[in-house]
Design a protein around this nucleic acid. Structure first.
Lengths: 179, 179
DNA sequence: TTTGTTGCAAATACTTTGCAACCAG
DNA sequence: CTGGTTGCAAAGTATTTGCAACAAA
């Protein structure tokens, strides 16, 4: 079932919580996100600011955490240092991620077997499934050619990592959210 | 194949890096860890201190990160706030984790299907597998009974979460590493 | 010797929280 | 009205980094 502002409100109220313009705006932002995209809290903040939506960082932190707990968002742990969020079940099929530990290049892939295995496991223990994420840590072909593993401070770097580095300097903080 | 101080040294030297007493101590600490246990950087630091091994936090951070990149350790993202580490392939079978989003109670389970699926995915893309982790986020039976989802600041809490809270106050920082 | 490594302290980065004002129900 | 929510500023906490001293190869 699809989440709408109305259904979100209902779900919130049921728990004694409230719908707010901020929460609606944030929900919309995630729903407008194109397939395979995920945002960090700061990405989301920037994006909202540019759209003229002035929502504080605190509120965004609080909201994404709440929505993740409600199972509306998925909290992804891909690149180092901070979390990314995306709609849960936004894609036609449940998907997972493969990330290169050198350049953080992330590939998304679908795999129903994993979801099935997870449901089996959850049922067995009497738990209730919120989300399951298979994250594959790997080395991308380019990094392999360069002789990875090597520390990031070494004298080589994937093209992606270099692009990232540049972004750091410009924005004074470091991460990637493409792919 | 099992990692030994000797094989670690060889692997390091091959990349132009060095074996040090600190690295050996840290490797040993992880190998002595009983099945299913994982440590945060701070857990490890405390443990080493108690054993009379005075290794700085910086070095531990640097070492676990290096060893994770080398595929010797697995970096786990279970409880909120900080990472846990464990030997990669320490267990007879590859294992994964199911964690309750309310109380952080973590269950470990084995599943070879997931590993097989991951290997398939990795090969398809020409990547080289370092690790794959299926993390299931779920609600434990106890939390379901209490009517989760609810914010942590609500007026109820799993017994595990309460135990955790107590630990916080005592240690002035918050996490769990049991189960 | 050369160059990677350590330890310390300082700096970062990310996230949480207290509190007064605000507003949804 | 009542109590959840927001925004701000001020903490917190986890992690990284510069640098001089040190030590492995």
């Amino acid at each position: 079932m699809t989440i709408t502002p109305t259904s979100l409100k209902a779900e919130l109220n049921e728990k004694g919580w409230r719908m707010t313009p901020q929460r609606e705006t944030i929900l919309n932002a995630f729903q407008e996100l194109k397939q395979g995209k995920h945002l960090s809290v700061e990405d989301l903040h920037d994006r909202l600011m540019q759209a003229g939506e002035d929502i504080s960082l605190s509120t965004i932190y609080r909201t994404v955490k709440l929505m993740a707990r409600m199972g509306i968002l998925r909290e992804l742990e891909l690149a180092e240092g901070h979390k990314h969020y995306e709609m849960n079940a936004a894609t036609p099929h449940h998907h997972h991620h493969m990330v290169c530990v050198q350049c953080n290049r992330t590939l998304e892939f679908e795999n129903d077997t994993v979801l099935k295995q997870s449901m089996k496991q959850v049922e067995k223990s009497g738990y209730q499934l919120i989300d399951c994420q298979l994250t594959i840590y790997a080395i991308c072909p380019e990094a392999i050619r360069y002789g990875y593993p090597a520390l990031p401070s070494e004298n080589w770097m994937c093209t992606r990592a270099i692009a990232d580095k540049t972004k750091h300097k410009k924005k004074m903080r470091g991460h990637r959210d493409d792919d």
